Simulated assay, not measured.
Amino acid sequence: MANPALRQAFEQKKFIVAPGIFDMISAKVADGMGFDCLYGTGFGTVASHLGVADAGIATYADMVARMGQMARGVKTPMIADADTGYGGLLNVRHTVMGYEAAGISGIQLEDQETPKKCGHTPGRRVIPAEEMVLKIKVAAEARTSPDFLIVARTDARTTLGLEEAIRRGLMFGDAGADIVFIESPESEEEMRAIGRAIAKPLLANMVEGGRTPILPAETLKQIGYAIAIYPAVGFLAVAAALERVYGHLKQQGDSIALGESYGFKRMTELMGFPEVWEFEKRWAQPDAAE
């Protein structure tokens, strides 16, 4: 069931910063940091689960299982990437129903052709706007709770230009999307133009090394955005840390002098070992030999 706190945050005009999560460790760490929302990144989830490019290879079954596992493992509301809805209108309905039943609080659907490509990468093509409008209407009808939010994304900016992207954003909002996501605007001025044109809550995708400039949260709020997602910041940091420690291990043959790490004790606490130990203590059987 969707967490009503997320819709309430938008209704209260609270600017939301949502870190990208991609596995259960990242989900657990982020869940304890006090964020209002977590973002299940498609790129990171596909990479951590399948080890392949986010290029339409992952299926609905792959993603609903992985995203649902993260959503059930945290208390913070979660928005999850669902690509194109994994097919036509019937697929979109099934995807919305599945994501909502999995405990996710918001679904992101995009207007790319199938197979889709990762945002901020070249070669993305979009379906006709009218087809995406139908997908959004089906999504809105399929949800069982108004607390389950629909994020409608357009990738039209890169191939068709900003004007077409804004036109689609307006159409998607009118069709029933709760949040409009114009992917990969290429300057702050373009982001300001989007903010002036679209009254619906807007999502900014802050990707390190991507096409869109990374702006401070206060600036994003001031120019009309309601939420900023940081899908890549977690898995980029993890990859860099692993490269460093694995490189040291390969060169030195030990893990000495690597500096401070997260700590094994903290990790056992994060994963719930103290509760397991307490359970075992309460239910321990007397030694048969005694």
Rank of each mutant, 00 (worst) to 15 (best):
A5Y: 00
P19M: 09
G73S: 13
I107F: 14
F35K: 08
R125Q: 12
A2Y: 00
H120D: 13
K116V: 13
K14T: 05
A101T: 06
G119Y: 10
Y86N: 12
A140T: 15
T114K: 08
K14C: 06
N3F: 00
E131T: 02
K117L: 13
N91I: 01
G103S: 02
P77W: 04
L134D: 03
D31F: 13
G51I: 10
I79T: 07
E130Q: 13
R72P: 01
E100Q: 04
I107V: 12
C37F: 05
K135P: 01
K75C: 02
E141Q: 15
A142K: 12
E110R: 09
G51M: 14
P77Q: 11
R72H: 12
Q12Y: 07
G98L: 05
L89F: 15
G103Y: 01
I136Y: 06
G51F: 07
R7Q: 04
L38F: 04
I104M: 06
R124F: 08
A71L: 02
R72W: 03
R124E: 12
Y60I: 04
R124D: 03
E130F: 10
A55E: 07
Q108E: 14
R125I: 06
G119L: 14
I127Y: 14
L50H: 11
T59N: 10
E131H: 06
L149E: 01
N91V: 11
I104V: 09
P146G: 12
V126W: 11
I16D: 00
P77F: 00
A27S: 15
I57K: 00
T41I: 05
N91P: 07
K117C: 12
V133E: 08
E130N: 11
A65V: 09
K116R: 13
T144A: 04
T95K: 08
L89S: 14
G40R: 04
V46F: 06
C118F: 08
F15N: 10
V126I: 14
M24F: 01
K137V: 12
Q108F: 12
N3S: 04
M1A: 04
T121E: 10
G85K: 11
G44T: 14
M78T: 04
P122E: 15
T76Q: 00
V126T: 13
S145Y: 13
P122H: 14
R66W: 07
S48C: 06
M67K: 07
L6E: 00
P128V: 08
K13A: 05
V92F: 08
D23N: 10
V46G: 02
M70P: 02
R143G: 01
A65L: 05
Q69S: 03
R93M: 15
G106I: 01
C118I: 05
L149T: 00
D62A: 10
A65C: 11
M33N: 14
S48N: 10
A2M: 06
R72L: 11
G20I: 05
G119F: 09
G42A: 07
R125E: 04
H94K: 14
P77L: 02
F10V: 03
F22H: 11
L89Y: 10
P19L: 07
G34R: 08
M132Y: 03
G106N: 02
G68S: 12
A71G: 06
C37L: 11
V46K: 04
I79F: 07
A65P: 06
